[in-house]
Design a protein around this nucleic acid. Structure first.
Length: 581
RNA sequence: GGCUCCGUAGCUCAGCUGGAUAGAGCGACGGUUUCCUAAACCGUAGGCCGCGUGUUCGAAUCACGCCGGGGUCACCA
């Protein structure tokens, strides 16, 4: 159930009836009529802008429409009060029965409470991480991994059919470098001195690869020219690195549905077919690009290349798909890959990129727009940097000095749950500070803890009630006499719960999983507030000694809160804490 | 110089499809524990929502132009 959607339906139904009776002119568009919580809750529980939106097209003063609408809405049993305010706002006060009904719905629907059909079963592909298979995942990948995974979970919850996909960049020069680096580690494993020249990957993580190569090939590759081993070692080493990456992802709780390989596109004609599809639309031509303005490149020279006319689909300049030596640029297989996704029948594509790929967005959107005839929207989320701190001091990272932080380091120090939650406490296009000391702190300063603590407190009360002999299963609590939940502070918490389905839809509509984290913080805050009011006012304590009926109702309320916290944490991929230790 | 993101309280940041007196945490100050976890709660102070113009009944939100900061910018991936 989504209360806001329900009430909006009611408003639209009344407006339709008013039209039928001639109180409003026919043919009005109700699309902009909104029902939302007012900023100031003194104004009521919900507000609609209907009168203001319709005043102009209807040719009637907003107050007149609002008054007429208020009178009609007031007849609905769910609405206890409908008042007109300001320029024509219609403020609605809902009956307590409505909020009590929300509590019951949460208990009845359980983990499905808030699930939406917004996506209507549309197939969406979320591509994320897509780290080069040249080493273990580092901290820079963590945020993209978490955002992509949480977004996938969110969209699935909101009614999309989601595929999580990883694009393996195993087709370029960087995997040759990997192979050469691995070869040196192979020589090392054979007892020789490795020669890690400038430009090779120096990391220790290739030592096991060298040993595995020795186990497989013995000494047979020693003193062989590169032409003999390069292809084999490339495959071997990148396969081992991908295994490493899968393990890293698993540690973070990220599970991919599909791994697609760039290399696998070569030699299949898929790249040629994609480029041909563009060529058929007159979007491929031979030409020379202008040098970038305002940036001085000493070695600039005009070059004739095969170009994609991306400017026809919103890009700023056309982009090369082929180098002057006739080989493909990175962009070409990426076009083919996105073409493949379109052909696999996805209704929408989402890419999660690092912010350093910002310049890549327009050309990729242009390609997808051209190749899907505008049918498939591509949303690209750029994830900004994570700045690491320890006790407020920035953590220095250098690949050369070997002090770069891996995903594994982060997860081992902070834990997957904390890491995931923290990565979602900012919207994607803002840089995020991650302080190893702070994220482990158990205080309100730490949103992960704060939300988990609320859940732990709820469980603590449930335990106490259970020990006292109360049946605290959801099915039984749902049958409690919820009319006992009448105190404004209790209704406030029920209202926060009622926001959940709405929040899911807003977050899903914008591909913004961080909203879930913020919502959970607010819900937890509402709960902690009510909890503490029990100090002063014992009638607000959840466990009422000797009064099972009242206790059941109050415990139903906090259990419903727990249901939503669990559902929200599930979207973030975080395990709810039963108790704090 | 082009593109792009950011600019909201002292600090870190939320803010929906434009909506009423702009919110939260931290920090500061002051309160609340014989009672379900005080790891929490309540209150006070703190704002030209970077600046300007436009659209609108109405702009932190949309458009355009400035200012400041980050990212990025031809045969790398």
């Amino acid at each position: 159930m989504n209360l806001f959607a329900d009430i909006r339906s009611l408003v639209v139904a009344e407006l339709t009836a008013m039209t039928a009776e001639g109180a409003l002119p026919a043919g009005l568009d109700f699309a902009n009529v909104a029902v939302e919580p007012p900023r100031d809750d003194a104004h009521g529980d919900m507000a609609t802008n209907a009168a203001m939106v319709l005043a102009k097209p209807a040719g009637q003063p907003p107050r007149a429409i609002a008054d007429a609408l208020a009178a009609r809405l007031g007849r609905d049993p769910r609405i206890s009060e409908a008042t007109v305010a300001g320029p024509g706002f219609l403020n609605l006060r809902l009956s307590n029965l409505v909020w009590q009904g929300v509590v019951k719905a949460a208990l009845t629907d359980g983990a499905n409470f808030g699930r939406s059909t917004l996506g209507n079963g549309a197939k969406v592909n979320v591509e994320f991480v897509s780290a080069n298979p040249t080493g273990p995942m580092h901290v820079g990948h963590v945020r993209g991994a978490v955002v992509g995974d949480a977004l996938a979970r969110l969209l699935a919850f909101a009614g999309w059919k989601v595929t999580r996909e990883y694009y393996i960049n195993d087709g370029g020069a960087q995997v040759d470098v990997l192979a050469r680096s691995a070869y040196e580690r192979y020589r090392e494993a054979c007892g020789l001195e490795p020669q890690i020249r400038e430009g090779l990957y120096p990391g220790d993580y290739l030592i096991p690869v060298g040993e595995a190569l020795k186990a497989k090939y013995g000494t047979s590759l020693l003193d062989q020219p590169e032409s003999v081993w390069l292809t084999d070692l490339r495959d071997f080493a990148s396969a081992m690195m991908m295994q490493e990456i899968r393990n890293d992802l698993a540690q973070l709780g990220v599970q991919m549905d599909v791994f697609s390989s760039e290399k696998a596109l070569y030699g299949t004609g898929k790249i040629e077919a994609a480029i041909q599809a563009l060529r058929d639309q007159g979007l491929i031509y031979e030409g020379t690009l202008e040098p970038p303005k305002g940036k001085t490149l000493e070695d600039w020279e005009p070059r004739v290349q095969t170009l994609f006319r991306s400017t026809a689909h919103g890009d700023d300049v056309d982009r090369p798909v082929m180098k002057s030596d006739g080989s493909w640029t990175y962009f070409a297989p990426d076009i083919a890959y996105h073409y493949d996704k379109v052909q696999r029948g996805f209704d929408a594509l989402i890419d999660i990129f690092g912010a350093d790929h910002g310049g890549y967005v327009k050309r990729m959107k242009a390609a997808v727009s051209a190749l899907s005839a505008g049918r498939v929207p591509l949303d690209i989320k750029l994830v900004q940097l994570v700045r690491l701190y320890k006790n407020g001091e920035p953590l220095k990272m250098s690949k050369r000095a070997g002090t770069f932080v891996t995903l594994r380091d982060v997860v081992e120090q902070a834990g997957a749950d904390v890491t995931r939650f923290m990565m979602l406490t900012r919207k994607n296009d803002v840089t995020l500070d991650f302080d190893f000391a702070k994220v482990l702190e158990q205080s309100k300063d730490n949103p992960v803890f704060y939300v988990q603590y609320a859940n732990a407190r709820i469980n603590s009360v449930l335990r106490k009630a259970r020990d006292a002999g109360l049946d605290v299963t959801d099915a039984t609590l749902a049958k409690a006499d919820l009319t006992q939940l009448a105190h404004p502070a209790e209704i406030d918490l029920a209202q926060a719960i009622a926001e959940w389905p709405r929040e899911v839809e807003i977050a899903a509509r914008g591909n913004e999983p961080h909203r879930i984290a913020f919502y959970l913080y607010e819900l937890a805050s509402e709960f902690h507030g009510l909890w503490n009011r029990g100090h002063d006012d014992h009638s607000l304590r959840f466990w009422q000694e000797g009064n099972l009926a009242t206790s059941s109702a109050k415990i139903a309320l906090i259990r419903a809160t727990g249901v939503v916290i669990s559902a929200g944490l599930a979207i973030l991929g975080v395990t709810p804490a039963e108790e704090m230790r």
